[in-house]
Nucleic acid binder design. Structure first.
Length: 452
RNA sequence: UCCCCAGUAGCUCAGUCGGCAGAGCAGGUGGCUGUUAACCACCGUGUCCGUGGUUCGAGUCCGCGCUGGGGAGCCA
């Protein structure tokens, strides 16, 4: 490494001679014979204050430095005589790596999220988005750590699929194209789609490796225009053999708690930005997620609670109807005031692969509802009985031929198994208090808008 | 896809009753031995989203469109 990271320098226990720092200038302050540069290198939220005095010399160069300029600074890390920071870099030499000009859109002031979305290629240079994407990276690592510690195998499931009805919404079809626009024979004899979920493939691996998970992109062509939906998003999907619905909920609860705990332990400074400027309730909420037991109620009981609620809903509450957003919010935000699993939904409103309960009326499905974000996780025990599954497919109008390989897992040594999917961006919204999914993913894709 | 709200300088926004287009920040020049979104002085900046209409006169009122945001549905 030919540079020191600011993260490490600011944690130093003693002065250090001759360090090299490379980064981007956040702001420059100057008077007649002294310059101050705030330099950020992305290693942490905080900037390093660089001080240039007469001894540094090249003031004519330093004067060209505007917000956004990339620099290399050589100097000594010394205790700062002024308030505001413990350490500062007393520069011996300041070199400009890349100049900027007055058209640089980021300034040393607050910008709106809407504006920053139009410059998503530059927004990670801001405090907020720098923190966001460091947290995203840590959360991603925590996902793998959680499953690794529990003996799960990570499966890379296909992104190109042939199944057009996985019970999870509209799909993007994939067309082959030549760069020269010439006609050519198709490579595949079927239409290919971008996957909406790795679940069906993951089930095959759960029924061989036991405990597996996928963590990859999912694509949905729904015309959803909300702060909680994106056309391309990342999803974590564990799938576990010999696991029933209640053990599935145990796993989901442990998983969410573990991710939050990991962030609290490893991302304190970055999280504090969100609790200070984005959501003052963030820290209490994260703490309560870690410590409170999640509520678990059957769908039927949820309906009873909603019927007795002393507020009037816009949509009717009736056994057999799906819960509306307003109902879910009431349950998690007003009634229980913590994460809530709702399980055993009527079979008519859930996909074909969910296990039919003994009552014949409900399926072993579960949704995890959390305050603010709403539905974070959706999962189920899978229907492992061949005849029942075939019956479910028939009533859903799904081709048994196309799903022949899927049915094989029920034909040969079938086992009880369960799994769930967690929207990774939804989790990040919960973990940071950010209200729009476009602001927790590097280059958001939403209906009608792909800028990058 | 449906409902509601918004669009004014590079950015954040003000603009009263329909009557000459404004401020802060950013940028430029100068000043200041230690600043903390530094400060002080001076300087420039506009398709008022587009389009059609009402009016002597429209940033302001009305219709349509575009873009963005919020709510709903769908879902993770």
């Amino acid at each position: 490494m030919n540079r020191s990271k600011i993260l490490h320098l600011l944690k130093s226990e003693h002065p250090v001679k001759d360090v090299v720092v490379r980064g981007w200038v956040k702001t420059r302050r100057d008077s007649k014979s002294i310059f101050f540069l705030e330099v950020n290198d992305g290693s942490c939220l905080e900037n390093l204050q660089v001080v240039a005095t007469g001894e540094t010399g090249n003031f004519d160069i330093i004067q060209k430095i505007l917000t956004g300029t990339s620099v290399k600074v050589t100097g000594d890390l010394v205790p700062s005589p002024a308030k505001g920071q413990r350490w500062e870099l007393l520069a011996k030499k300041v070199e400009i790596l890349g100049l900027t000009d007055s058209s640089y859109p980021l300034q040393k002031k607050r910008h709106s999220d809407e504006f920053l979305r139009t410059i998503a290629h530059l927004r990670p240079r801001t405090n907020k988005y720098g923190a966001m994407f460091r947290i995203r990276s840590e959360a991603s690592f925590a996902v793998h750590l959680f499953f690794k510690e529990r003996g799960f195998y990570h499966i890379h499931t296909p992104i190109l699929t042939t199944l057009d009805c996985e019970g999870a919404g509209e799909l993007f079809a994939v067309l082959e194209a030549s760069r020269d626009n010439k006609q050519r024979a198709p490579l595949f004899d079927k239409t290919l789609y971008l996957t909406v979920s790795g679940q069906l493939a993951a089930e095959m691996f759960a029924c061989s490796l036991g405990n597996v998970y996928t963590f990859g992109p999912a694509f949905r062509a729904e015309n959803s225009n909300t702060p909680r939906h994106a056309s391309e998003f990342w999803m974590v999907e564990p799938e576990v053999a010999f696991c029933d619905l209640h053990q599935n909920m145990d796993l989901a609860e442990e998983f969410v708690k573990s991710l939050v705990l990991f962030l609290l332990e490893n991302c304190k400074p970055d999280l504090s930005l969100f609790s200070r400027f984005i959501d003052p309730e963030l820290m209490p909420r994260l703490e309560s997620i870690c410590h409170l037991e999640f509520e678990r109620i059957p769908y039927k009981k949820a309906v009873d609670i909603l019927k007795k609620a002393d507020i009037s809903f816009s949509y009717p509450v009736k056994y057999g109807l799906d819960l509306q957003t307003e109902h879910e919010r009431y349950l998690t935000e007003n009634f229980f005031k913590k994460p809530v699993f709702v399980y055993d939904y009527p079979r008519e409103i859930k996909p074909f692969y969910m296990r039919v309960n003994d009552d014949g009326q409900t399926v072993a499905a579960m949704d995890l509802l959390v305050p603010k974000t709403g539905e974070l996780i959706g999962g189920s025990q899978r229907e492992e009985r061949l005849e029942v599954l075939e019956g479910q497919m028939e009533s859903a109008g799904i081709s048994k031929e196309l799903y022949g390989w899927y049915l094989d897992s029920r034909r040969y040594g079938t086992v009880l198994h369960s799994g769930f999917g967690m929207g990774f961006e939804r989790f990040l919204m919960l973990a940071t208090g950010v209200k729009n999914i476009r602001d927790v993913i590097p280059f958001p894709r939403t209906p009608g808008t792909v800028l990058f």
